[in-house]
Design a protein around this nucleic acid. Sequence first.
DNA 1: GAAGTTGATTGACCAAGATCAAGCCCTTGG
DNA 2: CCAAGGGCTTGATCTTGGTCAATCAACTTC
Lengths: 227, 227
Amino acid sequence: MLSQSELNTAKRSVLFRNVPDQMLQNLLSDSHKRKVARGATLFVQGDPATHMFVILEGCVKLIRITPGGEEIVVAVYSEGDSFGEAVALKGGQYPVTVEAVQDSVLLQVETRVVFDTLRSDPDLAVAMLSSTFSHLHELVMEIENLKALSGAQRLATFLISLAPVEDGPCSLVLPYDKVLIAKRLGMKPESLSRSFANLRKQGVSVKRQSVDVDDITQLKEFVSDDA
Amino acid sequence: MLSQSELNTAKRSVLFRNVPDQMLQNLLSDSHKRKVARGATLFVQGDPATHMFVILEGCVKLIRITPGGEEIVVAVYSEGDSFGEAVALKGGQYPVTVEAVQDSVLLQVETRVVFDTLRSDPDLAVAMLSSTFSHLHELVMEIENLKALSGAQRLATFLISLAPVEDGPCSLVLPYDKVLIAKRLGMKPESLSRSFANLRKQGVSVKRQSVDVDDITQLKEFVSDDA
DNA sequence: GAAGTTGATTGACCAAGATCAAGCCCTTGG
DNA sequence: CCAAGGGCTTGATCTTGGTCAATCAACTTC
């Protein structure tokens, strides 16, 4: 049911990385592959949490809809990322809505299966707590960024996280469109535009989806400066 | 070693609430009570994560120190709350610094003990995943609030969370000083002052640590309005 | 009880980002 | 080839919250 490359993606995922092969077989044999088209909704906030997910291919966004109808992007996950681990166990309701940003393939594992496996093997618990902790850590940094950094600095942080190198020049491709990037960074598309314009002084040039950075180190310094 | 009331607090905590008595005994017998004075640091970000904690008494803040030396408040926890569950298992480093806001008493459980208990009883795993998920959920809402609400609206949300009633009038006492509340809400003390002044129109009056609200429902509407 | 300290408030000013509006470029479909 | 629409950028203007500074009240401390 899973192709070899999908299986490899699953094995490399943060969630399953430390799970013994034997148990992984067990889990995977009882789970389903689900394809979702770009723009399709996986579940909405308030739905009973019946599954946890691993992304085999593509990209989804976790959003919250405010009482006023505005869409807040909480996180964007792509290949190898997992979500819903903790809530699936707690047995409550999903706190966010998840929508596919691109055509995507997901592995979906039923709560019941996870629950049973957990009883028979505590290593899975450690793996799940581990990956949940990664999410926790990401959210903590997200809050720090929102509270302490300017829009242009948040954008710089985002570019640094995309960069394939630690220092020096590089080019990269934006993983999704600018409207989504803006929401992800907590600003309006117009402000994102201006932030990009701002970063030109720091050696960043953009052309459509592709970005060239003269020097990643310079960007890092720009983020650290809180003048 | 634990007083009766401390034991009760531990039993009522989100983390231990669903843990069978027998196992709880086991965990508690192998853990230590730790007293920290107001202002004292429990651990700093980057320290190896060796323990998880339950607050028996008092109040702590989870903070991050930015490269520029600024202090960002990620969360404030008090009696019955736990933290460090997930990272204790992951075995990495604490992502935040924790400092006591008041003189406090904490239950501290060694990673090794948790790890061992986890192997012998999966119920603890579910309990830990559950409380970790609560933290995750709080952070998600925190991000939503930061991205979507104004300062005064965030303050209103905070007051609503403190209120003992669901609607109608009420009075409440601010749990810690305004500088900390301001940081918690992601603003400067001056802005908090102005936000309080703003809320006067919504029937909120403040005098030192005590707040009177004419109508909680009115506050809820104020938060929902995103005009 | 005078002086200094800390926490809170207020005002004047400034900067970052939101909003509203216009326009451009690129794709898509007739 | 042209029209239409979406994605992106730019400009003008306004709102929010930050900064700096003055003031005041409540508490220590000497």
